[in-house]
C-alpha cells in the first residue's frame, strides 16, 4: 500500500509543523544543585511521567533520593539513596520510596504477597523512572530474568511477543495476582478465552483436556511444533489415545508420503490426526463424529 504510507507520512509532517517545538524545559528549584553534576538525568527527568506529574508541585530529586545535603559534601553512592546497580539499599528499602506514593494504586494492591516481591525484585529493576517513556520495555526487561521464556518466545511457533503485538503484562499481572503464574485471570482457560473466544464453546461434544487446561496441550510462550503444541501431532494425541485401528497404530518412518505399500498414511502425513479431527477443541454436531464434524 505505497500510497497509503506516503499520505500518512505527509500528514504527520504537516501535523508536526503545526504543533511546533516546545520551549526550554522547566527544572524544579531544589533540583538545580543536582543538575550541576547530573545534567542529563535531570533534563531527561522533566519529560518523564514523574517529572510531568510533579510539575508545579513540591517534589524534586529529594522526594525519591532522600536528603541531598550530605551528598553535596560527599558525592559517593553511599551518601544518598541510590537506585543504581551498585545500590547499597535492599529491594525492600528502595520499594518503600516508590510505595510511599503508589501504595494506593489498584495495580499493585497485591505487591506484598507477589512472587516478584518475595524474590526481592525492586521497582527500578523493571521501571526506568528518568526517561520520557517509563513503561517497562517488554519483553526485553522480562527476558533478563526469565531466560526460559526468552528461548520459547524465539521458537518458530510463538505468540507474537517479540513482534510487539502481545506484551507479557497482557497475560501476567507482574505486580501480583492470586492466580498461579501471576495470571491476570482466575485460571488459564479464562485467560485464553479473552482472545480466543471461538474456543469457549460450550460444545455438544467436549474434549476434556481442552475444558480443563489449555496448557495440557499447548505451550503458550512458544514451541518447536506448529500451533504451540507441546508435542508433535500424532505423538501428543497418542500419549492419551490408544484404541484399535488407527489411534494405536505406529506412525513410524514408513508412514510418510513415500511410504511403501499403502500410499502414505493420512494419520501421519501433513497435519496427522488433525487431517480428520479438525474440531479437536469441541464439536457442535448433534451426532458424535469424534471431532471430525
Amino acid at each position: 500500500m505505497p500510497n497509503t504510507g506516503k499520505k500518512s507520512l505527509l500528514l504527520i509532517i504537516v501535523m508536526t509543523l503545526f504543533w511546533g517545538v516546545s520551549p526550554a524545559m522547566e527544572v524544579q528549584a531544589d533540583s538545580i544543585a543536582c543538575a550541576d553534576c547530573h545534567e542529563k538525568i535531570t533534563a531527561d527527568f522533566q519529560d518523564s511521567y514523574h517529572g510531568r506529574a510533579w510539575t508545579g508541585k513540591k517534589h524534586s530529586c529529594q522526594s525519591c533520593h532522600g536528603d541531598t545535603a550530605r551528598h553535596l559534601d560527599d558525592p559517593s553512592q553511599e551518601s544518598i539513596l541510590s537506585f543504581g546497580e551498585k545500590s547499597r539499599q535492599t529491594a525492600d528499602e528502595l520499594n518503600k520510596m516508590c510505595l510511599g506514593c503508589h501504595e494506593s494504586s489498584s495495580h499493585i494492591s497485591l505487591w506484598d504477597m507477589s512472587k516478584h516481591n518475595s524474590n526481592d525484585l525492586a521497582c527500578i529493576n523493571c521501571h526506568d523512572i528518568h526517561t520520557r517513556k517509563s513503561e517497562v520495555a517488554q519483553p526485553k526487561v522480562c527476558f533478563n530474568c526469565h531466560s526460559s521464556v526468552r528461548m520459547d518466545a524465539g521458537k518458530i511457533s510463538h505468540h507474537p511477543i517479540v513482534e510487539g503485538k502481545i506484551e507479557c503484562s497482557d497475560c501476567h499481572n507482574t505486580h501480583g495476582s492470586l492466580s498461579h503464574g501471576m495470571l491476570v485471570e482466575d485460571d488459564i482457560n479464562q485467560l485464553c478465552y479473552r482472545c480466543h473466544a471461538e474456543k469457549r464453546g460450550p460444545f455438544v461434544w467436549e474434549h476434556p483436556p481442552v475444558e480443563e487446561d489449555c496448557s495440557i496441550c499447548h505451550a503458550p510462550h512458544g514451541s518447536r511444533h506448529e500451533n504451540l503444541m507441546k508435542e508433535k501431532v500424532s505423538n501428543l494425541c497418542q500419549d492419551c489415545h490408544n484404541a484399535n485401528l488407527h489411534s494405536g497404530r505406529a506412525y513410524d518412518g514408513d508412514a510418510g508420503f513415500a511410504a511403501t505399500g499403502r500410499a502414505g498414511n493420512i494419520g501421519f502425513i501433513a497435519r496427522s490426526c488433525l487431517n480428520c479431527h479438525g474440531n479437536i477443541h469441541g464439536s457442535t454436531h448433534f451426532e458424535n463424529h469424534v471431532y471430525t464434524r
Binding site: R271, N275, G278
Partner: peptide, 16 residues
Amino acid sequence: KPLGGGSFWLNMEMPE
C-alpha cells in the same frame, strides 16, 4: 484457516 474433516479414507483438508 485450515480445517480437517471427513473420515480416515475420505479426508478433506478445507479452507475454513
